[in-house]
C-alpha cells in the first residue's frame, strides 16, 4: 500500500468506504422482506397469546407510543413488532391470563420484575455491539436494570429512550459528584453540549475500567481524543504513562488543565529531590515582583517542563525540550 507522504492511507480508506457502500446497497436490495405485520385476531395467536389488538384495547397509549419508537418498526426483523401481532407479548409475555383476570399480576410488568430479570428480557435482543459487556458489569452488579434508565413506552429524551430529557440527568441520579464536577471552572465541554457522559463511558459495560468506552485501560480512552499524548516517547513521564488520572481529574476541577491539585504542590508529591523540586514556594513568590518565582506563578513547573507528557528530544530527559 502506497501511503501519502504524511502517512495517511487515503487510497485504502476510500477503497474501504467503497466496499462498505457496495455491501450496504447489496444488503438493502436483497430479498429480505420483513415478517409481515398481521392484524390477526386473538384466535390466530399461539396458545396464551392474545395479539397486539387485544392489548391495545385497554393500553392504547402504550401501543401508540411503541409504534413511534424503533421497537415498533416491523421492517426490522429483530424488533418485537416483526413478530406477527406480538409486539407487546414479545416482552410482556403471553397475555391470556391477564386478559381473563384483568389483574396486573398476571402479566410481566417491568416495574415489578426483579432487576436482572427485566434486563434479561431486554438483553435477549440488545446483546450486540456496545451491550455485550452488560452482564457482570458494574451497573448489573448493583442491580441496575435497563428500565432503571430507559423507558420503552414513554421516553423523554431525543435519543436512547431515556426516562429523563438529557443523558446527564440520568447519570446524575446516582453519580452526583461527577455530574456536579463537570460544571466546575476547568472542565471538558460537557455543559457546552460538545460532549456527554457517554462520550467517555459506556453505561452498558465495557472491557475497560470505570466502564470507559474506548480501549482496555484508562490511557487508551484518553488518547483516543488527545492522540498527541499517545507516544510512545523517547523519554516517558512515568506518572503519565501509568495513568492520566494520576494528575488529572477528567470530570472537572478548579485547577488549570483539570489537575487534581495545583502545581508545584502536585509535582512535589513525587519529586522530593534536592534544589528546586523540593523548595517551598510561598506567598512571597506570587505577591511581590521582586521575589516572584516562575516555579509557582503561571503554570509553575510546566512553565519549563513543557513536554510533561513525554519528550522525543534527545535532550528531553527532564521534558524541558
Amino acid at each position: 500500500m502506497t501511503l501519502r507522504s504524511d502517512g495517511f492511507p487515503a487510497r485504502a480508506l476510500v477503497t474501504a468506504l467503497a466496499l462498505t457502500w457496495v455491501s450496504a446497497v447489496g444488503a438493502a436490495a436483497s430479498d429480505r422482506a420483513p415478517a409481515p405485520r398481521s392484524t390477526s385476531s386473538a384466535s390466530a395467536q399461539p396458545a396464551n397469546f392474545v395479539g397486539d389488538e387485544t392489548c391495545a384495547t385497554c393500553h392504547e397509549a402504550e401501543a401508540k407510543a411503541l409504534r413511534a419508537t424503533l421497537h415498533g418498526k416491523a421492517q426490522n426483523e429483530r424488533t418485537p413488532a416483526a413478530r406477527s401481532g406480538q409486539s407487546c407479548e414479545t416482552c410482556h409475555g403471553p397475555g391470556q391470563m391477564h386478559v381473563d383476570s384483568g389483574r396486573k399480576e398476571d402479566i410481566r410488568r417491568f416495574t415489578a420484575m426483579a432487576p436482572r430479570q427485566a434486563s434479561e428480557t431486554c438483553l435477549s435482543c440488545h446483546s450486540r455491539s456496545t451491550h455485550t459487556q452488560f452482564y457482570g458489569g458494574q451497573h448489573d452488579s448493583r442491580n441496575i436494570s435497563c428500565v432503571t434508565c430507559h423507558s420503552v413506552h414513554s421516553p423523554k429524551s431525543a435519543v436512547a429512550q431515556l426516562k429523563t430529557t438529557s443523558e446527564i440527568e440520568t447519570c446524575a441520579t446516582c453519580h452526583k459528584v461527577q455530574a456536579m464536577k463537570v460544571t466546575r471552572a476547568q472542565h471538558m465541554p460537557v455543559v457546552e453540549g460538545k460532549m456527554s457522559c457517554s462520550s467517555c463511558h459506556n453505561p452498558h459495560g465495557s472491557t475497560n475500567v470505570k466502564q470507559l468506552r474506548v480501549g482496555n485501560y484508562v490511557n487508551e480512552s484518553c488518547v483516543s481524543c488527545h492522540t498527541e499524548k499517545r507516544g510512545p516517547f523517547l523519554w516517558e513521564h512515568a506518572a503519565g504513562r501509568e495513568s492520566c488520572i494520576t494528575c488529572h481529574d477528567p470530570h472537572g476541577s478548579s485547577n488549570d488543565r483539570m489537575l487534581v491539585a495545583k502545581a508545584p504542590m502536585l509535582c512535589q508529591r513525587c519529586h522530593i529531590g534536592t534544589r528546586h523540586p523540593s523548595t517551598i514556594y510561598d506567598g512571597r513568590n506570587v505577591q511581590s515582583v521582586a521575589t516572584a518565582s516562575n516555579r509557582i506563578y503561571g503554570r509553575a513547573c510546566v512553565n519549563c517542563h513543557s513536554n510533561i507528557h513525554g519528550s522525543n528530544h534527545p535532550s528531553g530527559n527532564a521534558f524541558l525540550r
Binding site: 488549570d256 515582583v289 516572584a292 509557582i296
Partner: peptide, 25 residues
Amino acid sequence: DFALSPNYVIGQRTLPDGLMLGYGL
C-alpha cells in the same frame, strides 16, 4: 488564583525571571 490571577505577579507579564504571555484566569 495566586498563580494565574492578574492581581498577582502573573498580571505583570514581564517578570525578573520570565516573560509570560498574559494567559491566566
